[in-house]
Simulated scan of single mutants.
Amino acid sequence: MFRASYTATSKFKYITQTIAKITDEAPFYATQDALEVRVLSPDKTTLTIVKIPSIAFEEYEVDEEKHFVIGAGELNKIVKRGTRNDILVFELDEEKNQLKIIFRNKKTGIERSFVLETKPRTVEKIPEPQIDLGVTARFVADDYKHIIRDLKIIGEEAVFHYKDGKLYIYSHAEQKEYRGEFSEGNPLTYLSATIDEARARYSVGLLEATLKPIQAAKFVTLSFDRDKPMKIEFEITEGGYVVYWIVPRIEA
């Protein structure tokens, strides 16, 4: 049995939009702690995790860990029909292989319901990397967006370099170059490191793909280390978050 209700229906739209942009079929995992979607890109360069803690729901019931797969586009279309006056309710019917989606008006109690067939898929939950990363920086979401878009017009690769208490980001191609210098308070809201220096390269295309949930976030936190995957975390509405893990380009 799985049942959950979410009061901020209009804000939940950001979550379903994000899921629909990263996958056609969304594998959901409902545990005692959270409702999650985890998707590994076909080329295995990016792991995306959307997670909503159970405490973010008004009501959250799951008797044991459940997993189900539904069409992400169809889910997005249905959730768009909700309004700020609705409570959003999910009910999983395992016998019928269905996910019932209910909008209950907070004032009148009137309900509208939709049913989505779950896909006949058994999807193994992808483990999140357990990696210590030496540098962590926190950006205002708009600042992060502008940096990635600046990088996009230069080249295919971006270098992230931490040294002497500052974060440097740069990219270069024939006859053009981008360089950015960032420190805590200018404009980073947070910068911390457990190492003296770290330098790593990442695909600008993979970084650009992380901009998909930007409208739902106020802050973006990224962590990296030499020749290790980068972790990029978006804090989204009502205690949820989206995490991207992207592989590095190993320096020769």
Rank of each mutant, 00 (worst) to 15 (best):
R121W: 05
K100P: 03
T210W: 03
V220N: 07
I110G: 05
A217W: 04
L133M: 11
R179C: 01
F57H: 02
I153S: 15
E59C: 08
K77T: 03
D196A: 12
V247I: 14
D33K: 01
P53T: 00
V204F: 07
E95N: 13
D33H: 02
I147M: 15
I126E: 07
K163N: 07
T108N: 06
A193S: 15
I52A: 00
L222I: 10
S113K: 14
N76T: 12
N76V: 07
E208H: 15
P127H: 10
Y6H: 13
E111P: 04
R84Y: 13
F114A: 05
K145P: 10
P120V: 04
G240S: 14
A158L: 14
E61N: 02
A173T: 13
F68A: 00
E235N: 13
K231P: 04
R81Y: 11
K106A: 13
L151D: 00
K166Y: 09
G134D: 12
G185A: 07
G82Y: 00
N105A: 07
A200G: 08
A8W: 06
S41E: 01
K66D: 01
F2K: 08
K106E: 15
F57C: 05
Y14C: 10
I101L: 13
K13L: 11
Y29H: 07
A26H: 08
E25R: 00
E235R: 14
R121K: 09
A137D: 01
R38K: 06
E124W: 02
T189C: 02
Y162C: 01
F90S: 06
P120M: 04
S113E: 15
R199L: 13
I250G: 03
I101M: 09
I154V: 11
T23W: 06
R149V: 11
S5A: 10
E65V: 02
V115E: 13
K66M: 02
V50G: 04
F160V: 03
E233Q: 08
D142C: 09
E235S: 14
Y162Q: 00
V115L: 14
L92R: 12
T46V: 08
I232L: 09
P129D: 10
V242R: 01
K176I: 09
A252Y: 01
N85G: 02
S192F: 06
R226N: 12
R199M: 15
K125T: 01
T46R: 11
I147V: 15
E74S: 10
K66P: 01
E157H: 09
T31S: 08
H161A: 05
I22W: 07
W245R: 00
L167C: 04
E94C: 04
D143P: 07
D24L: 10
E59V: 09
V243W: 03
H161Q: 05
D63M: 06
P27K: 07
K106H: 11
R104L: 07
Q32V: 02
E208F: 15
S113L: 09
I148V: 15
E251W: 06
V243L: 09
V69S: 07
H67N: 10
T23C: 13
D164Q: 11
K107R: 10
F182D: 03
F90E: 09
K163C: 03
I195R: 13
F103T: 03
I147A: 12
I22K: 08
